[in-house]
Design a protein around this nucleic acid. Structure first.
Length: 290
DNA sequence: ATGACTATATTCTATAGA
């Protein structure tokens, strides 16, 4: 199952970029952010025409989130975070597809700092953490996908940057991301690529794309039960390189199918995988202790 | 300190983004 998150930066302005990317990558589920369109202006007919169903929450001018599913309509579970007093800001939508719960979230930017926008960023993240904690406690399989507007570590921004005042890098911002992970969520891109550049955003200003000076802002967090199924991950840089592209690239993961319990009549394929697991090295923690 | 770039609404200018 291929899952992607994509800050599209205007779903109507970039509809052709979105459709051509969908037709090439064919993800099973896509979480979109920054629709920049009212709910009534979401291009559902064009999206259905390439084989996707969708749920979405729009807003005039800014924000806006959606969840797309190939060959299915996601089952909506909520259109905002609980106790969200800022419902006019369309930043969260949640829906189930094939037994997995998906959230598409667009966290506040928070600049300039200090100020009310930074306060709102931290307050919104606290509401996300409260809700996410409930999802982990419930034990359901969940993917929290979206633009978190947080650079988690110094390894997630181009070297030599001068962004020290940026709300996306502040310790208070990073702590909220760490609190999420400490609930048990797995940062899937870093699970596959533990170190090194993994940019998902390159600003339009100052030739950031040409110079490959990016940041990692878009994250796919997996609930504990899904983490063993993580098979591959990547950033669709070709979409950022395209004409008229969003300033974000799509980020994707591949989840392996659920392994079925061995049936009594299982054939030769089972013995092969058993042999492979027998030859596996001992876990890192065990080796490290010696 | 400012603007550079790209978007939408407030539209020959302002606001937001990151």
């Amino acid at each position: 199952m291929r899952i992607a998150t994509y800050n599209i930066n205007g779903v109507n302005r970039r509809l052709e970029n979105l459709l051509s990317w969908l037709e090439v990558v064919r993800p099973d589920v896509v979480c979109l952010q920054e629709l920049k369109a009212e709910t009534s202006a979401f291009p559902i007919e064009a999206i259905e025409a390439v084989g996707y169903g969708a749920v979405w929450q729009g807003q005039r001018s800014w924000n806006g989130v959606a969840i797309l599913a190939r060959g299915a309509t996601p089952v909506l579970t909520r259109r905002a975070l609980p106790s969200d007093r800022y419902d006019e800001q369309a930043r969260y939508i949640e829906a189930a597809v094939n037994g997995i719960l998906f959230a598409s979230l667009y966290a506040p930017n928070g600049n300039p700092r200090p100020g009310p926008k930074f306060d709102y960023k931290l307050a919104w993240m606290k509401r996300l953490i409260d809700h996410a904690g409930g999802l982990v406690a419930a034990g359901v399989p969940v993917v929290l996908a979206g633009d978190y507007n947080i650079v988690p570590t110094d390894d997630d921004i181009y070297p030599g940057h001068r962004e020290a005042d940026n709300a996306l890098l502040q310790p208070e911002s990073r702590v909220t991301f760490e609190r999420l992970l400490s609930q048990g969520w797995g940062d899937s891109l870093r699970a596959v690529y533990p170190q090194g550049p993994l940019w998902t955003f390159w600003g339009y200003l100052r030739h950031r794309w040409r110079d490959d000076k990016g940041m990692r802002l878009d994250h796919l967090l997996l609930s504990p039960s899904l983490q063993p199924r993580l098979a591959a991950a990547g950033v669709s840089r070709e979409a950022r390189a395209a004409e008229g592209a969003s300033d974000h690239a799509p980020v994707w993961i591949e989840l392996a199918p659920v392994r079925k319990a061995p049936a009594a009549t299982s054939g030769p394929s089972r013995s092969r995988s058993t042999a492979r697991s027998r030859g596996r090295k001992r876990p890192m923690t065990e080796r490290a202790r010696r």
